[in-house]
Design a binder for these strands. Structure first.
Lengths: 170, 170
DNA sequence: CGATGACGTTCCAAGAGTGACATGTCGAAA
DNA sequence: TTTCGACATGTCACTCTTGGAACGTCATCG
């Protein structure tokens, strides 16, 4: 049910077409709430039907510009302040750890060291992105930096954990 | 596609019925890969059809005991060692952070402090669970402790981040 | 002028996941 | 003996997510 709010959130920063939103998704929310093109367009349709957004302009190539309505804004605020975030952590990576006893200690260690390496790379990537969005005073940038910091801490934790976990084996 | 491997993983530690697996899920994998009863039973059906598990006994009340086959074990090992973990992080909690600019700084801070509190509680909970599974030398316990440690570090990171983030606002 | 690449939308099939409902059996305690 | 809680499986309808196909437009470069 959160894709709906992701879309409302982006539209609350300014009107956009489905195509625009796709690009926005890719460069801001992609790591937090991925969505495909087909999902986006169908969600926009539903949102319009529900009166949470309006089509406020039609451009060339059938372009439709969507604008959030008062009702949509109210829904967004309601979600932000009153709906408790549902935590559903689903981690393929951790699931495997449970069953590492099924393979040799060497293979288990290899898995964990692979994860450490992956986390290290991600850390680097985040640091490089950080430089790019250092300035930027729009809401999405300001709060996006908080999210980025979260990602940074998470990646560091993950790396340290994976290194620690390797030592626990064998 | 991972529920399938979660089930194979549990069955690799010993035969069990759907009902048994449900309980196992709840107390070990629940925080890593939640599953509902209906999902479990239908997955067991598919697994049996695919020859990755066998029904090796039928007990009272229609109980069916499932046992992993050689083919199933092979699939499990293949997944563990050769299939790269797909990382899909989807976080309702972080998604909201992006849009915190839509509400007042006070509300934004309240949200973050709520998250800090939640992480703190989770940390406590993990510490209490830790005491319970301290001993236990079966594979699920040994590797389960690695997962628990991950959860512990994650919760601590999250708490610290939420406290830090609050200070960035206003 | 023609090709190409970015723009832009819509539809569809299939698989996952959710939550509720239906349908019983068995053992033990009141 | 009735009733209750644990045991036990299965089905249904719905939503979410994925990935791809199909279709067409506009501007620009050679």
């Amino acid at each position: 049910m959160s894709l709906r709010h992701a879309v409302l959130g982006l539209l609350s920063e300014g009107s956009a077409s489905g195509y625009d939103l796709m690009k926005l998704f890719d460069l801001s929310l992609a790591n937090v709430w991925p969505a495909t093109q087909s999902q986006l367009y169908s969600e926009l349709g539903k949102l319009a039907e529900a009166g949470l957004v309006d089509v406020t302009a039609e451009g060339p190539r059938g372009r439709k510009e969507y604008t959030i309505t008062e009702k949509g804004l109210a829904e967004l605020r309601h979600w932000l302040t009153e709906v408790p975030p549902a935590r559903v952590l689903r981690s393929d990576m951790l699931l495997r750890v449970f069953f590492l006893g099924r393979v040799s200690p060497e293979e288990a260690k290899a898995y964990l060291s692979g994860q450490a390496e992956l986390a290290r790379k991600q850390l680097e990537q985040i640091e490089s992105i950080r430089g790019l969005v250092e300035n930027g005073t729009d809401n999405l940038s300001v709060y996006g930096r908080l999210v980025l910091e979260y990602g940074h801490r998470l990646a560091r934790s993950q790396q340290e954990w994976a290194e620690w976990a390797q030592k626990q084996i064998g």
